[in-house]
Design a protein around this nucleic acid. Structure first.
Lengths: 365, 365
DNA sequence: TTGTACGCGTTATCAG
DNA sequence: CTGATAACGCGTACAA
């Protein structure tokens, strides 16, 4: 900020009054009533052609545009839905939001984004904000509904009193709203099976946080999957390291330096692609070749996966589809009959070369 | 969507009337006037303690929250600014938006995002939408203001009649609004000089689009810089390929296959990091080693730059700072005295290893 | 300290 | 076909 320098004061201008023309002004100038102006505006048929034209001319001349606030006040829908999620900086949520935005737009709605850091209690102010704006509905996405969040139940209940709510999240229980959840079982099963098929026996899991009950679901499922295949579930093969690339670097460093080389895992499953990215860097730095020295699988199938070296095998949770479904359900449940149900999209394993396989798309039962 | 399956109809619930309580309801139930309720709501001092408490209790009981529409109508600001830019899918704009969002929030404002594809005319509907919502101001970002866009002048003028406007963009002329622009000169100069210093003489530029006058600025500056250093500005050393990784792959493929090996450039400057990412992949695929076989520099200093192989040298345009400045200026120019000026943040070269240098941060005059 | 009444910009209803 | 006029929900003078 201080290093930004202003320059070139080019000039000054700008109208003085900042657009204050109302429907009254138009009506007066056109010599009609406000009702007629409204009729022209909404294309109502019962208005004489010449009147319509005259009014329209005035409207155009002033580039008059009715106020949304006033219009909303009159009782109709604001045609806006809210979407509450972690900051778009996380590319997974970027995709989620983008798809929601497009779907909303396709239905004549606007998707207002409310960013919220994860693992932070639902602030009462946020709920207030949503209600104040009289949104047509809200989508909560991300690990929003973890039981750690205080005031969750209350917030949800209060909100639902005003508008429909749908959650896009890991499988959660007791959620009294429509819930579109990700396939966390497949998300663990797919990569483990894939690695097992390729002959791997010592498989580790890095990323996330075991202490957060919902986020740990991934880790739990991973362990169950290992046991189902009679693979060792050594605690040393699991390290929490958060959700970004830096965490991935740290995780690898910590795990491998703490382990006798003969006990090193031969494959890594990362919480997400960001973590995997960091892990790959650290692995190379330690002199390992990929995928020979270590196989690795990410999650989210981000845009950069085909461009890592080697290209990264990853699980696609199809956030776009989930977002679109969420928006559609939200718009459908517009009216009071608030149903409550869950829906799920299967995960897909996108095989590239970070595990030494070259199979293209592949889906395991 | 069709592959998403519903399951587990858990139950049904939801209040029937979807929150219709108004300030009148509260007033009646508390046995006071609406004015008093308002006073309690806004923490006005002149209200007796017991009255306040009684009213507050009713408010809490109903979880009453005043309507934003009604409040806005009353004349005050909507405390919302708009930010119009390309889809947040592009990580550069993600950062831009995120910073704007935070800065707005820090000032008690909300930043409403309006996504618009680049190189598309400013739709009248969009401007209508912005005006309809009576925003406190609008930020336009990206290559929005290219002269190719039809109706640009008109849209801007009309908009400015309603609210302050600031543009975050490449240097543009004749923009009758506050303009925070990126340092496109430095953006070309820095990488060229860096490569020149390292001994490179045949330097190519890939990405963007020469046909779009504003986007081509980068290319123009690049050429000028080459000439200033007496380097060859062979047209074959420039290929348009858009703005994503796939484009980068294509660009490399096209350029190198069309060129005799002895005339190959020894270094590549990419329009942005996405393009550079694709280029790196294609270069490796053609058997070149990086940076020995080819040096490469990206732009935007994206999160993945430290994690490419080799880590990518890139130019940082500091989108976050620009966004924050834009928001601040917007909020400042709240009142009618619409000044018009430009400000610029210097670009910075972040040196990593994709050019074979190991210098850390480095800034060239 | 509290209440009354009006304005904010639109739409909808009901007369003409 | 068109024009008054009443909501809509809230803030705010002004009055009590």
């Amino acid at each position: 900020m201080e290093s930004i320098r202003k320059s070139r004061t080019v000039g000054s201008g700008g109208k003085s009054v900042m657009g204050k023309i109302t429907i009254y002004d138009i009506a007066r100038e056109a010599g009609v009533s406000t009702a007629t102006v409204t009729r022209v505006l909404s294309g109502h048929p019962s208005v004489r052609a010449d009147t319509r034209e005259r009014v329209q001319r005035i409207i155009d001349a002033h580039a008059y545009t009715p106020s949304a606030s006033a219009r909303d006040l009159e009782g109709r829908s604001t045609r806006t839905i809210g979407i509450v999620m972690p900051p778009v900086i996380n590319p997974y949520f970027t995709r989620l939001y983008n798809a929601a935005y497009e779907e909303a737009q396709a239905n004549g709605y606007y998707a207002a984004l409310f960013q919220m850091n994860e693992n932070q209690p639902i602030r009462r102010e946020l709920v207030d904000e949503l209600i104040r704006r009289r949104l047509g509905g809200v989508i909560f996405a991300g690990n929003i509904w973890s039981s750690e969040r205080s005031g969750l139940k209350e917030a949800l209940e209060r909100l639902r009193n005003y508008m429909p709510v749908v959650a896009v999240c890991p499988p959660a229980t007791q959620l009294d709203c429509i819930c579109v959840h990700s396939d966390l079982v497949g998300c663990s099963r797919l990569p483990v099976r894939h690695l097992h098929t390729l002959g791997h026996r010592r498989i580790a899991f890095i990323g996330g946080s075991m202490r957060l009950s919902d986020a740990s679901r991934r880790g739990q499922n991973f362990l169950e999957e290992l046991r189902a295949l009679d693979l060792p579930d050594d605690p040393a093969y699991h390290v929490d390291c958060g959700y970004d690339a830096e965490g991935g670097e740290r995780a690898v460093l910590r795990m491998l330096t703490n382990l006798d080389r003969r006990r090193w895992p031969t494959a890594l499953i990362a919480f997400n692609d960001l973590v995997a990215l960091g892990a790959m860097k650290q692995l190379k730095q330690m002199g390992l070749r990929l995928p020979e020295g270590m196989a690795i699988i990410g999650c989210d199938n981000q845009f950069f996966c085909p461009y890592t070296d080697p290209p990264m095998t990853s699980v696609d949770l199809h956030p776009e589809e989930m977002a679109r479904s969420a928006v559609r359900e939200l718009l459908l449940s517009h009216d009071g009959d608030a149903k409550t149900f869950s829906m799920m999209r299967d995960a897909t394993l996108v095989v590239r070369e970070s595990c030494g396989a070259r199979l293209g798309y592949r889906k395991l039962g």
